[in-house]
C-alpha cells in the first residue's frame, strides 16, 4: 500500500489520514466542548471536512472515482444538514430560548 503522504506547506510530508482525523477531532471538540449552538454547527461541518479529506485521498490512492462521487454526495448532504440545523437554531432564537446549549434544560428527568 503506498504511503499516505501529502506534500504540506511546512516542507515535510504529512500523513493524509492524520490530517483528516485531526480535522475530525477538531470538529468533535467543537461540538462537544463549545456552548454556542452555532459553534457546534461549525464543528459538524469540520467533521465532514475531515471525512471528505480522508475519502478524497483514498479515492486517489485506489484510483476509484466512486470515492470522489461519495465525497460530492457527502458534501451535499452536509449542506442540507447545515440548512436544517440553522433552521432549528433560528427557530430556537425566535422561541426566545437563546443560542446556548446550556440553556436547553427544560426537558429532563
Amino acid at each position: 500500500m503506498p504511503p499516505r503522504l501529502l506534500p504540506s506547506p511546512w516542507g515535510r510530508e504529512v500523513n493524509a489520514l492524520a490530517v483528516g482525523l485531526a480535522l475530525f477531532a477538531a470538529g468533535l471538540a467543537a461540538v462537544v466542548l463549545r456552548g454556542q449552538l452555532l459553534a457546534m454547527l461549525l464543528g459538524l461541518e469540520l467533521m465532514i471536512a475531515g471525512v471528505s479529506v480522508i475519502l478524497t485521498y483514498e479515492a486517489g490512492v485506489f484510483g476509484d472515482p466512486a470515492g470522489l462521487a461519495a465525497v460530492v454526495l457527502i458534501i451535499a448532504i452536509a449542506a442540507a444538514e447545515a440548512v436544517v440545523g440553522l433552521c432549528l437554531i433560528l427557530g430556537l432564537h425566535r422561541a426566545g430560548l437563546g443560542g446556548r446549549a446550556g440553556s436547553l434544560t427544560e426537558l429532563r428527568e
Binding site: L37, L44, E81, V84, G85, L88, L97, L104, L107
Partner: peptide, 16 residues
C-alpha cells in the same frame, strides 16, 4: 424546539 435541537446535534454527530 429544544427537543429538536438536541435531536439534531446528537443525530448529526452520529451521522458524522
Amino acid at each position: 424546539f429544544e427537543a429538536a435541537v438536541k435531536y439534531f446535534f446528537a443525530g448529526a454527530l452520529a451521522s458524522c
